[in-house]
């Protein structure tokens, strides 16, 4: 009988359920509400954080779940932002449609990037991802007719949300819209993260050969995951285009990719919450520290990273999760 009792104790992540979805929705709505009331005059900053959070969550899907090393992930975000921006300039001005354009563009870029990058592991993979990112960045600079080059793609002016809610100058509607899109995306992705597909991706990350030995076709699966990650990054890119009205070269740059990786490490790879919390914490830290010390804030960011990696190598959310798990096990043992 002991055995059956223990089997019942399979961790919650292995169970699906509306309860988890509802809890996630409430948590994100609560985070959104806190942001709205704590930073009522700085919603543009929070909108930027949400856009970046999509990029970090997307990165988590390929790096945290599949173990793919990449420093070119901003390409997926940036291409989607340019696509949504150009769609708007071409007459597709509905924000929902612009997000759909971003999703398609991100997924297509993810497909191309995934086909290239996931063939390899380790350093060749990392180098290929950087090369892909730099290629996209160079193209964005050269193809100024569709990207605006170094001046950026400007004049993006989406129509009101559902034809009713204008993107006001204070960013209130834009913020609420962004939080709503984040909420829906996170609930869908958290469900996805509990799926057999995602579980298998984590298995591939742990041991590719073992996964192949139970009959998994590893390469196609990683490419599919890259497409999904591209779609998620694409939502972030489109949201950024919608809310800021302008897209600069920085959205596809190497720095954006590196920054996203730092946020992921900070929050904890392999957990979608880790990606989200990492993006929020990093941006908040940078926000305050850069205001307090405009010339030295990067030094403090470096120190923060060293501290996190030294004391919480798996990231803050994973560390909290580990300690909670240990406590539960200790309590169960008693």
């Amino acid at each position: 009988m002991t055995a059956s009792v223990s089997i019942e104790a399979v961790p919650p992540r292995a169970t699906s359920g509306l309860r988890n979805d509802a809890l996630a929705a409430v948590a994100i709505a609560a985070l959104g509400a806190i942001g709205y009331f704590v930073y009522p005059d700085d919603l543009a900053f929070l909108i930027r954080v949400i856009g970046l959070a999509f990029l970090v969550i997307s990165l988590d899907l390929v790096t945290g779940y599949c173990g793919v090393a990449t420093l070119g992930h901003a390409a997926l975000f940036g291409v989607a932002a340019y696509a949504a921006g150009n769609a708007c300039l071409a007459g597709i001005t509905d924000p929902i449609l612009m997000i759909l354009v971003g999703i398609v563009a991100g997924a297509c870029t993810g497909l191309v990037s995934g086909l290239l990058v996931t063939r390899f592991r380790g350093l060749p993979q990392l180098v290929l991802s950087i090369a892909f990112g730099q290629l996209i960045a160079a193209l964005a600079n050269k193809l100024s007719s569709i990207t605006g080059g170094s001046d950026g793609l400007a004049g993006i002016s989406p129509t009101p949300i559902f034809g009713v809610f204008n993107f006001d100058m204070f960013g209130r509607n834009g913020y609420i819209f962004s939080v709503a899109v984040l909420l829906v995306t996170m609930v869908v992705l958290l469900r996805f993260a509990r799926s057999p597909f995602a579980l298998m991706c984590r298995a591939i990350k742990d041991d590719t050969l073992r996964a192949r030995m139970i009959g998994v076709a590893v390469f196609p699966r990683l490419v599919v995951m890259y497409c999904i990650a591209g779609a998620v990054a694409g939502i972030g890119g489109a949201l950024t285009a919608i809310n800021t009205g302008v897209i600069g070269l920085d959205s596809v740059g190497f720095e954006r990719s590196a920054e996203a990786l730092i946020m992921l490490i900070l929050g904890g790879a392999g957990k979608l919450w880790g990606a989200l919390i990492g993006a929020i914490l990093f941006e908040l830290f940078a926000h305050y520290v850069s205001a307090a010390s405009p010339f030295h804030w990067m030094i403090m960011v470096g120190v923060l990273l060293i501290v996190v990696v030294l004391f919480f190598p798996k990231g803050l959310v994973n560390e909290v999760g580990r300690r909670v798990g240990d406590l539960r096990r200790a309590r169960a043992a008693k």
Partner: peptide
């Protein structure tokens, strides 16, 4: 995972079947 792989269930993306 091995059970699900053999049964062709690991392509499922939106339902946990474990």
């Amino acid at each position: 995972l091995a059970v699900m792989q053999r049964r062709g269930l690991t392509k499922r993306m939106f339902s946990s079947v474990i």
